[in-house]
Write a protein that binds this DNA or RNA. Structure first.
Lengths: 246, 246
DNA sequence: CGCCAAGTTGAGACCTTTCAAACGCTGTGG
DNA sequence: CCACAGCGTTTGAAAGGTCTCAACTTGGCG
């Protein structure tokens, strides 16, 4: 049995269901799609795969077979160095692609771990590239935007204080959830404080302290993994004020 | 592989005049090429463009027309936020592509600034994509490896101390220069301490102190922008010892 | 020849880390 | 059903690594 959030019969949420990336807002009436890939492959009969929280979709070093399109759930991807240092490179949700970064090599370059009950669709790369004229263009676009996203976080990590980084993360996640049709006010964090700290280049205690301090300021409401953005404008203001680092 | 032993007499610069990315070792007898793009477009009559140090090849926000392949010289690319924070996303040399990150959008997403006398070849994207069958595959590969490279630096910045980051940078640059046929022992830094600090998420004083300390340990020799790696193995050891962050 | 940008070095402050302890959930087993 | 174990979270206090501010040096260039 999976121990993630409780579900009775249906363990997986199609696009909505109990514990998901956020509290559901609406049954996503429009094509939710960040990458455009979702639309492209909508009609195709794709292999599906379901995962429970903490399950690995693939690990760095494994032979790469396919790409995966997240259909539901929440993933983290992480790289690690020979001497054991680990770094979470991102948190991925519906519409994101997994495995893209190793498109040109034979083995996956990162781990992909489900942080919640999740479902992915397997995309046979070669096959799609040859049959769908737009496919490769789309991939190129996704790759480029992934680079820009990474740069954005490098900028944040390099120029923002601990509290500001946490705020940036919350606002970013809220925006992404919003784009998927979930509530941008109530965030259900799927990762531990340690994961968050790892991603933001902070210690887990520092993350906790930042969250506590933001709550003390009345900007957010923290209840363990569940976070409510009480004053989004106030949060954004914290970021704008950034003139000097740290 | 590239022969790294023999060293000709001439101290400086092959194809273009004065200072180059490193001291020249050999006139690059074989196709030096990191990306494979160089070979692909070798025979093509490409528009060339030369820049002096501090000249911008393009700026973020400008309409994107082409990609550029660096043929000689040294560039930095940097992103900046609305509120003025700036972050250098990488240092680029021969064989690297500039503008790739904005392939899917109409405007450049970063600045590209020459840090030395440089020369680039303009690649008309649409045209090459339609005429060279391998072109897009190559671009995809370059994009993917750029992502992996960024992740590597995110890992370094998140898990290494100031001194270790500087060491990682020096070793990385040395390896890249080696691959281009330059001496991996004598590095001519083209960027300021401030640039370096920006890239490594450190203050310029911290970079200076790290370099001084490495010199005091007898691992490197610092003479302003010119750095000699006295004990590369020792430097690598500094990185391996990393078990805890900071 | 003097100005100016870039680099070096010092000293103190500050933020984040480190180490420790306590608390709260959640699943397990008696 | 409840006690217990284990993991994740919170909070405190102290240590430490970088940052900040400031002065001084060096080399390049008009």
């Amino acid at each position: 049995m999976l121990h993630s959030s409780s579900q009775a019969a249906e363990p997986i949420a199609p696009s909505v269901e109990s514990g998901f990336a956020g509290t559901v807002r609406l049954p996503s009436p429009r094509p939710v799609c960040a990458t455009g890939i979702e639309n492209l492959v909508r009609a195709l009969p794709l292999q599906r795969r379901r995962l429970r929280a903490k399950q690995y979709l693939f690990r760095a070093g494994q032979r790469r077979q396919s790409l995966f399109l997240i259909h539901a759930g929440f993933f983290k991807t992480c790289v690690l160095s020979e001497d054991g240092r680990e770094k979470i490179t991102g948190f991925r949700l519906r519409g994101d692609l997994l495995g893209l970064d190793s498109l040109d090599i034979a083995h996956y370059a990162c781990d992909a771990v489900a942080l919640d009950v999740s479902e992915v669709r397997e995309l046979p790369y070669q096959q799609l590239r040859d049959s769908l004229p737009d496919f490769q263009d789309r991939l190129t676009a996704v790759l480029a935007s992934e680079i820009r996203r990474d740069w954005g976080w490098m900028l944040a990590i390099g120029t923002l204080s601990a509290e500001q980084r946490v705020v940036a993360f919350l606002l970013d996640l809220a925006a992404r959830l919003d784009g998927l049709g979930f509530s941008p006010q109530r965030l259900m964090l799927r990762m531990t404080r340690a994961d968050l700290g790892n991603f933001l280049a902070l210690q887990l205690e520092t993350v906790t302290r930042a969250l506590s301090h933001l709550q003390a300021q009345g900007l957010i409401d923290v209840a363990r993994r569940e976070i409510r953005l009480v004053d989004p404008a106030g949060l954004r203001a914290l970021l704008d004020t950034s003139r000097t680092l740290h």
